[in-house]
Computed example of a mutant assay.
Amino acid sequence: MQHDLPRILDGAARSAGLSRSEWHIQCKGDEQLAVLPMSGDQPRLVDDYFRHLVSELRHHNEQRIPEARMRLRAAMHQGPVELADNGFAGTAVVVTARLLNSRPLYDALDAYAAADLALLLSDEVFRSTVAGGHTMQRVSDFSRVTVRLKEHESTAWLTVPTIGAPLAVTEDRESGGRPVGDRPYRASADRSAPAPEPDEGDVEPSRNSASAVRDAYRAERMNVTHMNGPVDARGAVFGFGSTGV
């Protein structure tokens, strides 16, 4: 774990075009606490970094037996941090630690055995990036939860990058078994319209699936966009086909 974790985190940063050499990193055995400079990279972290981290984890785990698989909890917060004699100091560091060790992250990984990563964003990060429309992430891919741990209580936003908004209700360890979610976790909960009935040829999702897999070709549902010049297409999906008969 101590050998593979830094390598995986470094690989995700390189793939996202981020330099971890500019980060202040505190190693904690099977954990890392990273403090980043105020460089405007916050949307890229939420978007690109965690997407590439999922890819790195998948590649790592495909080469190992199930017992040696690595699964990670991740939490992100923002605020001033001071470099101290033995690490970092400041409220932002404490809040990040509380988020990382909160029950919703553990429950998400317990509920989705196929997932390699569960991510929790503080309310401040979520509102300034995802809700602010500065990433390719959808608000409906997150569930709002209340984190209660020791003296800390705050709103946070939970997602499992390969699943979306978790479906299961979680409970806080220190609240006597009360649900900590402000609402039950439901994938795409912010959508006001019900999901359409599956068409012939589509694969209907099971009750335990967070998303449907649709294999049918639907030309009338395709959008064609002509672009000139550089385009930021991170998170986009492209299709290519010949013009011949």
Rank of each mutant, 00 (worst) to 15 (best):
D4K: 14
L9G: 00
L9D: 01
A16H: 06
G17M: 02
E22S: 01
H24T: 09
H24S: 11
Q26V: 06
K28V: 07
Q32K: 05
Q32L: 11
L33H: 05
D41W: 08
Q42W: 00
P43L: 04
D48K: 03
L53C: 05
E56S: 05
L57I: 04
N61H: 07
A68L: 15
P80A: 09
P80T: 09
P80V: 03
V81E: 03
A89F: 11
T91V: 08
A92Q: 07
V93L: 14
V93S: 13
R98F: 11
P104K: 07
D107P: 01
L109A: 06
A114R: 08
D116F: 01
L117K: 10
T129K: 11
T129P: 09
G132Y: 08
R138E: 05
V139C: 13
V139H: 10
D141V: 00
R148W: 05
H152C: 07
L158P: 04
V169C: 12
T170A: 06
D172S: 14
S175G: 11
P179I: 01
G181W: 01
G181R: 01
G181I: 01
R183T: 06
R183G: 06
P184C: 06
Y185V: 04
A189V: 10
R191Y: 15
S192F: 09
S192I: 11
A195D: 12
G201T: 15
G201C: 14
V203G: 14
R207Q: 13
N208Y: 12
V213D: 12
M222E: 10
N223P: 00
N228Y: 00
G229F: 00
V231G: 00
G235S: 00
V237P: 03
V245K: 12
